[in-house]
């Protein structure tokens, strides 16, 4: 804008870009905020991550393929912004496959059953403990559980967000689930929960 002229006319492509950004990206602001908060566990940090995510998305809007999953695209940017915001990345954990954790989870179940905790996850009073356990779950397992189990993403979408193969999502997810279940059984014991009927 100059002192003696009106606002600079926007080009047709700028107008079209802004319309598409408004239509496809902005509706996901709440979802991205929730995801950022899950990653950062701190409102002010989530605030910064969300702003940076949408600014990057706007600047690189020309790379978004119309008609594809914009939420997934934004989550990918968000996670990358989050990882870069930390001074160093956590080392990538390579797991063989998830089946060991899937089978190990059955041992956790047996331990829970013996204490009468079969219905442990149905107990509403455990929800805060479950949230805390998820917040404390180490990366990259926490991201996998958040994306698939909390945000209801497919393995494929989660793999794209995390930038890893689908098999890696599966193994991280299974490890995260098993760790959460172990933690909850311990919490229930520490809190002196009365099981339905210890065996």
């Amino acid at each position: 804008m100059t002192a003696d002229a009106g606002p600079v006319a926007r080009s047709a492509s700028d107008v079209a870009r802004d319309a598409a950004f408004e239509r496809d990206a902005l509706p996901w602001l709440d979802d991205v905020y929730r995801f950022a908060l899950s990653l950062t566990r701190e409102e002010s940090d989530a605030d910064d991550v969300v702003q940076e995510t949408f600014l990057r998305a706007y600047r690189s809007w020309h790379t978004f393929i119309p008609g594809t999953d914009c939420r997934r695209w934004l989550f990918t940017i968000c996670r990358n912004v989050f990882l870069r915001s930390r001074e160093r990345q956590r080392p990538t954990v390579d797991l063989e496959d998830g089946e060991q954790d899937a089978v190990a989870a059955s041992s956790v179940y047996e331990a829970a059953r013996e204490r009468g905790y079969d219905d442990i996850f149905a107990r509403l009073d455990l929800a805060p403990a479950l949230r805390e356990a998820l917040d404390e779950l180490a990366e990259p397992f926490r991201s996998a559980v958040i994306l698939v189990d909390v945000e209801d993403m497919s393995y494929e979408s989660a793999a794209e967000v995390m930038g890893v193969p689908i098999g890696t999502v599966r193994s991280r997810l299974f490890r995260g689930r098993r760790l959460l279940q172990e933690k909850l059984v311990t919490v229930a014991e520490d809190l002196g929960f009365q099981g339905a009927g210890a065996r």
Binding site: D30, A112, D118, F121, A127, L130, L134, D149, V150, E151
Partner: peptide, 19 residues
């Protein structure tokens, strides 16, 4: 048991909005 676990985790999805 596992279905209940997955429902409980899914239930953690807080319907939070950006402030």
């Amino acid at each position: 048991y596992q279905e209940c676990f997955l429902r409980a985790v899914a239930g953690l999805r807080q319907e939070l909005g950006a402030p």
